[in-house]
C-alpha cells in the first residue's frame, strides 16, 4: 500500500501549464519576429487564446471545490484505489 496527496496531481498540472506557457510565448514571438503580425495571424492568435482561457476556466470551475489535501491510497483496505 502507498499513498500520495491529491495535490501532487495539481502540481503536475501546474508544471504542464508552465511548459504550455513557454511554448505559447515562443509561438507568438515567432509571429512577431518573422514580420507576419498581420490581421489573420492576430485573429487566429486571439481565437486560440480565447479557447485556451475557456478551457482553463471550465477546468477551474470543475475542480475549485475539491479538497486537495485528500490522500489517494493505492492497494489499501479500500481497494486498488481509494480516497481518504
Amino acid at each position: 500500500m502507498f499513498s500520495i496527496p491529491f495535490y501532487f496531481i495539481l502540481i503536475a498540472y501546474f508544471l504542464y501549464l508552465a511548459i504550455f506557457l513557454i511554448f505559447s510565448i515562443a509561438n507568438v514571438y515567432h509571429i512577431y519576429a518573422s514580420g507576419t503580425f498581420t490581421f489573420p495571424a492576430i485573429a487566429v492568435t486571439t481565437i486560440v487564446s480565447l479557447i485556451c482561457v475557456a478551457i482553463l476556466f471550465v477546468t477551474f470551475m470543475n475542480v475549485a471545490s475539491i479538497n486537495w489535501g485528500t490522500v489517494i491510497v493505492f492497494f489499501g483496505p479500500g481497494g486498488i484505489l481509494s480516497f481518504e
Binding site: 491529491f6 496531481i9 498540472y13 501549464l17 505559447s24 509561438n27 486560440v48 479557447i51 478551457i55 471550465v58
Partner: peptide
C-alpha cells in the same frame, strides 16, 4: 476532478499543436 484535469491537458495540447 482527475478526468477533468486530463481532458484539460489534452485540449490545451491540441490547441498548442494546432497553433504550431
Amino acid at each position: 476532478a482527475f478526468i477533468v484535469l486530463m481532458f484539460s491537458v489534452y485540449e490545451l495540447t491540441i490547441m498548442l499543436v494546432f497553433y504550431s
